[in-house]
Amino acid sequence: MTAAARLAALDALPAEELCNHAEQALAALVDVMNQETTLLRAGHLRQAGQLTPDKTRLAQDYVGFARSIQRQAARLTVEAPQSMERLRAGHESLATQMAENLRVLATAKTVTEDVLTDVARMVGQQNRARAYGTAGTVTADPNASAKGIAINRAL
């Protein structure tokens, strides 16, 4: 089935059915984002990362339904006004959850970078050669910083 055929099939769904599909996708997306936020707050970064494929798939599903609803807004408002109102409220819930999720992700990224930077600094200090310079003080070799530690900023 081509992309155009899939879009046409979505747009042709009965109003209540289209809205129900969108509500289900929205609820599932909010749920997985809530799970991810909870795991990140608890410091379980790997477990939170395992939710990424589901979150991506659910977001794509929801965007597909949302675009169809935008194209069919006039028809849906007449045929399913209560469902459209529920979707608006659900979308506001998604926006709130996304803001919280992004805030927690940013915090986790900052904490991770700080920890790794501190570890790199400590490892670099341990590897420095301790020798006295001409002034009788311990000299620090600026090239003796940690080697082999990298910070992945893609969190």
Rank of each mutant, 00 (worst) to 15 (best):
L40H: 12
Q125T: 12
D141A: 06
P14D: 08
L39I: 08
L51Q: 06
D31K: 14
G49I: 06
L87E: 00
F65W: 14
E113L: 05
A22W: 00
V32N: 08
T77H: 11
Q126T: 14
N143S: 07
L102H: 08
T96E: 15
E113M: 11
Q72L: 10
G43I: 09
A150C: 08
N143G: 10
R88T: 01
N101P: 01
S83E: 15
Q125D: 05
A22S: 01
V115E: 02
K147E: 03
D61Q: 14
R6S: 08
E23G: 01
A59H: 09
A66W: 02
L76M: 05
R128H: 09
P53G: 08
V78E: 15
D118F: 06
Q126G: 11
Q35T: 10
L102Y: 00
R130L: 15
Q72A: 06
A73F: 07
M98I: 15
G43W: 02
T110Y: 07
N152S: 06
Y132M: 10
A22F: 04
A144K: 02
D31W: 10
R121E: 13
V111I: 15
G43T: 13
Q47W: 02
A15F: 01
V119W: 04
P142L: 03
A59L: 05
A9S: 12
T139H: 06
P142N: 01
R130S: 05
Q72P: 14
L87Y: 01
V32A: 05
N20Y: 05
A106W: 00
V104Y: 10
E92F: 06
L7F: 09
T117G: 04
A108S: 15
T112H: 15
T38K: 10
T139W: 04
